[in-house]
Design a protein around this nucleic acid. Structure first.
Lengths: 189, 189
DNA sequence: GTATTATAACTAATGATATTAGTTAAAGCA
DNA sequence: TGCTTTAACTAATATCATTAGTTATAATAC
């Protein structure tokens, strides 16, 4: 009965890999246990059942997403920063499809960490939209718009929603530029 | 052993109700059978297992969505039509939360019906964007943008993604108007 | 260094689920 | 009325998640 030295973070990393490989839905404790060379009840020493594991994946996903997007806007501002953030967002969703599925699952557990990382993401958007000089409300509306668009785009793309023969990245940039054009018109009117 | 007169459509309707009541994830054949006063193996006479049922729900969801949105744009054109379509889209997502979860599940089955209803939705968008005089490519980009935004907005709203103290419908309209403003600028430049 | 304690692994067992195979009786049709 | 189809059934299996109770290893106290 060797001690495998597992801990919560090791579980998360392995679980995310499983999700990426075959979808979040088919992430089971049985499969995770097998991957880690352990019997499934042993996982309960580190994780409070499957719902807890999935909630933890949501937080883990948000952590990585914040990391990537924050990196992407360093040294940029204005439209450049927004475009760069959005590109990074979608690259992340594409590179971690199973983990990204956990993005909105948001079950109750892990409340402190979840709120913290959500606030980080919000702040990133707030700072990027600062130079546009929108009012407070308008800024929040715009953030909701960008978040919705990015999440919808990532989800639809991942599930084969864009089947027309048309570059996906072109669509991304067309939409963002159109939205930004509208925002510029807004701030000057 | 009374024959219950079940058929595929009855199953779909009942399954969608269960999904709305407690989430698509907790839609089980066991629960569905219980709701229909039948043992779960009996369901296999009408449905090819759980994956098939979920795929059928996707098609059913798209059917209803097309119905609602098509209704919403009758007698309208231009920005009015778009705003009305978007309102109807979100109202549908809100009124059928569990069914809407099936929106993008899109497992392989039911191919003919699925493609047909997806084409209907695409055509609805195409006709509404006609008057804007965008090029063919730009129109498709714009459709991807609207679909992504609507899907992301509906999903985030449903999963508690908008927690700031700010009217959700205001955000919806702000974003749409901003995007339309950008589109108008586009077509005149 | 030894004894104690905490804990990370284990086995065994339960209950829910999906699914398949094979059976029966009701409904539709010749 | 008899035949056929089929929609229900029962029985059985396999996969899961989860809980309870056990054991041996690692960490700590003395």
């Amino acid at each position: 009965m060797a001690k495998m030295g597992l801990d919560r973070h090791t579980l998360l990393v392995a679980a995310a890999e499983l999700a990426d490989a075959s979808g979040l839905d088919s992430l089971t404790l049985a499969a995770l246990a097998q991957k880690l060379n352990v019997r499934s009840p042993s996982l309960y020493n580190h994780v409070n059942g499957l719902p807890d594991l999935r909630a933890a994946l949501t937080v883990y996903c948000l952590h990585l997403l914040v990391e990537k997007t924050r990196d992407a806007v360093i040294g940029k501002s204005g439209d450049d920063a927004i475009l760069s953030l959005c590109d990074a967002y979608l690259q992340f969703a594409r590179s971690r499809p199973g983990l990204y599925e956990a993005f909105y699952k948001v079950n109750t557990q892990e409340h402190e960490d979840l709120e913290a990382v959500k606030a980080e993401l919000l702040n990133l958007f707030l700072r990027i939209l600062e130079p546009y000089g929108l009012g407070e409300k308008e800024t929040l509306h715009a953030i909701r718009g960008l978040r919705s668009f990015l999440h919808g785009f990532a989800t639809l793309e991942q599930h084969g929603g864009f089947q027309m023969d048309l570059q996906v990245d072109e669509s991304l940039h067309y939409v963002l530029k159109t939205f930004l054009k509208g925002m510029h018109a807004e701030s000057t009117s």
